[in-house]
Amino acid sequence: MTALDKTKEAELVARVKAGEEVACARMMTWAERGDPRFAVAYDAFHADLGRARRLGITGPPGAGKSTLVERLALHWRGLDRTVGIVAVDPTSPFTGGALLGDRVRMGELSLDKGVFIRSMATRGVFGGLARATDDIADVLDLNGRDMVVVETVGVGQSEVDVAKSSDLTLVVLHPGGGDTIQAMKAGLMEVADIYVVNKADRPGVDRLVQQLTDILDVRDIPLQDRPPILTTVATEGTGIVELAGQIDASLAEREADGRLAGRRGENLRRRIRRIVDGRLRQDVWELAGLSERLDQGTAGLESGTGASVSAYGLAEEILSDYRERRHGETQA
């Protein structure tokens, strides 16, 4: 079988650092699957991280995010910056499968070694979506990418969390994508550092920009944090230079006044919480084998032969079982 499966963590780290694509891809797979080897590797490379600029891009499906990412990447390549892209699409709740099609919109980047694209499904991920995208973005950073972009569909809290877990968050909207109410419901408005109104070739752009402006006016945001609104036509490349310029300017400003460092610290704390949450959950349900306790406690319900069960009562029993066993282990 391939040598890749037998590769030791430290060797794979060295190969990712050296820019080897196949190594980079495998490290991402470890990250995505929550393979314990990733944590070992991470310990060996975390001190090298932080060089890449990280952008989160989110917005409703069809807003033009992937097209925009392709255009931005082409622009950055022209400035000789390398690019890493993580494109996240939803897993089907029915089949557990996913159809990941963002690459089709990024065709012009296909053969450029300066661009690494990875598609990801929302499920198939252990310990939360943002846990996995943070790790994969780190691999791209380690791999030496200057600009790292994570694209998610802004539909739910976990996707919005992904977008937030970055140096700068872009929210992409388009006229005809429902009004801003939709975006507000999805929690998109709070995370935007820059608004992009794409499809400016379509009617309704001015209205959408006005709606956004009105919303920002009534919100009590310090002037320096007020997100700029830019318009683009991604398919034609219109407004891309301006958008890229705004991204650089926003990052530079935040670096100079300390907001970037503060945000990275905040992201790191949230990330560690996620790891702890994930481990705890795994610990309870897998290591301590309490899933069986749950099944036993609710046995007979389906057939109608069981007595009614208190959800809180059984949960508390499971937790106290867990604590007891854990306590026993630490005593031993």
């Binding site: 196949v22 891809a25 159809l99 990941l100 690459r103 296909s110 053969l111």
Partner: peptide, 21 residues
């Protein structure tokens, strides 16, 4: 999990996509 690579692709692009993914 299906990565859809589209049509009219060259062998080079296909191999590159397979590696990265």
């Amino acid at each position: 999990e299906v990565i859809y690579g589209g049509l009219h692709q060259t062998p080079e692009i296909i191999a590159e996509m397979a590696v990265q993914e």
